[in-house]
Design a protein around this nucleic acid. Sequence first.
DNA 1: CGCTGTGATACCCGGCAGGTATCGTCAAAG
DNA 2: CTTTGACGATACCTGCCGGGTATCACAGCG
Lengths: 285, 285
Amino acid sequence: MDTRELRYFVAVAEELHFGRAAERLGMAQPPLSRAIKQLERRLGVSLFERNRRGVALTGAGEVLLYEGRAALDATDAAVRRTQRAGGVDAPSSRLVLAVKAAGSHELLQRLLAAYAAVPGAAEIEVLLCGFCDQEGLLRDGRADAALMHTPFNSLAGFDSEELTTEGQIAILPARHPLAARESLTVADVGDVPDLPLARWPSYGVYPPGPGPEIRDQTQLAQLIALGRTLAVMPDSARAWLWSEHAAIPLTDAPQVGTHIAWPAHSRSLALAGLIRTATELRRRG
Amino acid sequence: MDTRELRYFVAVAEELHFGRAAERLGMAQPPLSRAIKQLERRLGVSLFERNRRGVALTGAGEVLLYEGRAALDATDAAVRRTQRAGGVDAPSSRLVLAVKAAGSHELLQRLLAAYAAVPGAAEIEVLLCGFCDQEGLLRDGRADAALMHTPFNSLAGFDSEELTTEGQIAILPARHPLAARESLTVADVGDVPDLPLARWPSYGVYPPGPGPEIRDQTQLAQLIALGRTLAVMPDSARAWLWSEHAAIPLTDAPQVGTHIAWPAHSRSLALAGLIRTATELRRRG
DNA sequence: CGCTGTGATACCCGGCAGGTATCGTCAAAG
DNA sequence: CTTTGACGATACCTGCCGGGTATCACAGCG
C-alpha cells in the first residue's frame, strides 16, 4: 500500500465526505473517489458504506483509520529524523523535548541545567505545547522525548522513566468560602454550584458541560481569579498561581507522575544522555 | 515519502549493492539508482556514500534504515489487520498468537484451554516460530499477540503482562560427568572443554564460536544426546527432555520471564479477552 | 418537477516509473 | 601499463496511471 492512498483514505475517513476531503487534499473529487475504490479493490475489503446521503466507515475502515494513522506517523517520523540526522545542524546534535506549557516547570529547569553540564551535550529545543498531544509529537518524529503526566497521558508504546510524583491541589478564587479549608476531597470540588469545572478540548472538541471552555493556562488562571471556575492541578502548578488564587490540597486525588518518555527502541546517543541525566536527577531527589 | 521508495531504499541499504537490490526487487538497476537519487533529493539528505567499489550508508542513511523499517512494518500491519477485519472470517474473530516452538508449552496449553472456555472467544491461531523474531511478527501485523521471554526478547514498544517466571537449567548428556552434580553455576557450564555452547542464528547469521550451529530444537536435543554440546534453557524445557538428557538447575542464572505481549494501543475486543484470560491464569498460579 | 448536494463515470493528458543501451571510473589481474 | 570486469550513473524511450474537466445518476426537498 502506498502512503499517498493512505493519506487519501484518512482524509475521507475523517471528513466522511469525498468533496471536503478532496478539498483538504488540494485535489478534485473524482480522482479521490477513484483512488479510494482502487484501494478497496487492492485490499480486497470494503472500507466505506456508501449510503445515500453520505458515507460511513465499515469495521475494516475503522481498523485502517486507526492503524493507518500509526503507519503515517511512523513514515513522517522516518522522514523527519532522517532529515535531522543529515541536516546542516550537525548530526543528532539537537534534541526536541516536548513539554506541556507551564507543567513541571521547576523539574524542566533542573533537567535543562543538569543536561547542559554534561560534556558533549546536544542542544535541547524545548517544544512547549498547550493542549496538543505529546504522544502524537513523539510518534511522528516532531519530538524526540516528552515530559508526560500520568494519568493524563498514556505511555503505551513508548519507553519511559518516572521522574517525580506529586499530589494534586484545587485552585480556587482566594475569596471563595472553600478557600478557607485546610484540605479538600475530589467530591468537594466536583460539585461546587458556583464554580463549575472548566472544560478543555480533547482531540479538538470540547466535552459538554456547564463550565467555561478553556484554551490556555492564562485564560484558566484569569477565570479562576474572576471567581468563575476552579481547577484541579498537580502540586507544581503552585509555581504560576496569582495572589487572587488559593491552593488547597486534595487528599484523595490520584498522584500525578511526571515521566520522561521517548520512542521505543530509540538509538540516539544524545537521547540516551538526556534520559540518563533525567533519571539521575530523580535519584538525587 | 512513498512506501515504494522506502522499500527500494531498505533493499539497497541491506544489500549495499544496487545490482543485487534491484534483482531482489524484481527490477532493473538504473531505475533503482534513479529512485534512490530522487529520494535523496526529496529528503535533502545524502543517504549513501558512493565510494569506488560499492556503497556505504551515511549517518542519515542508518537512521532512515532503522526508522524506515518501522514505518514499513506499520504499513504492512495496517494492511494485514484491515484485511483480517474485513475478510470472510467474521470480523476480528480470529487472533494470531506467536509462540516460540516448544517454549512454555504447558502454559500455552492452559492458556488455550482457559480462553476456549470464555464465552464468545475468538478462534486462536497459534503461530509456532522457531527462531524467527516475534517482535517483527507483532510489529508488521502477522501476529496479534506473542508469548515472549525476557531477557531474550525485548518488550520495548509493546504492552505486556508477565505471566510466569522460572529458573534455568543446564541440559547435558546424561553420561557426562557434570550430569551427576546437584546444581551448577553459569561459570560451570560456560567453559566446558568438550561441550561447547551451541550457537543459533541471530538476525540470520551465526555468531562465531566453537559450538555447533543449531537450527531447531530437535537438532539441539540430538546434539546434546550425542554428547556434542550443552544448552541452557528455562525450567519448562524439562517437558521435552530425552532419557539421554540430564537437567541440572543453574543456581545463578537470571530468571526467565514469560510475558504475553501485544501492540500498544491495541483496541481489539477479542485480544483484550485473551489478555484478561492470560492474566487470570497467572493469578490462579 | 426542478433544484441541490453527493458520489460515480467517461474521457483526456502529462508526468513519471520502468525498461534498454551505454558510459565513466576504479581496481585487480596480467 | 594495459586490459578487463564490476558497478553505479546517464540518456533516452515508452506505457501506465494519477489527476484534471465535464457529466451522469440518484436521493432528498420544496
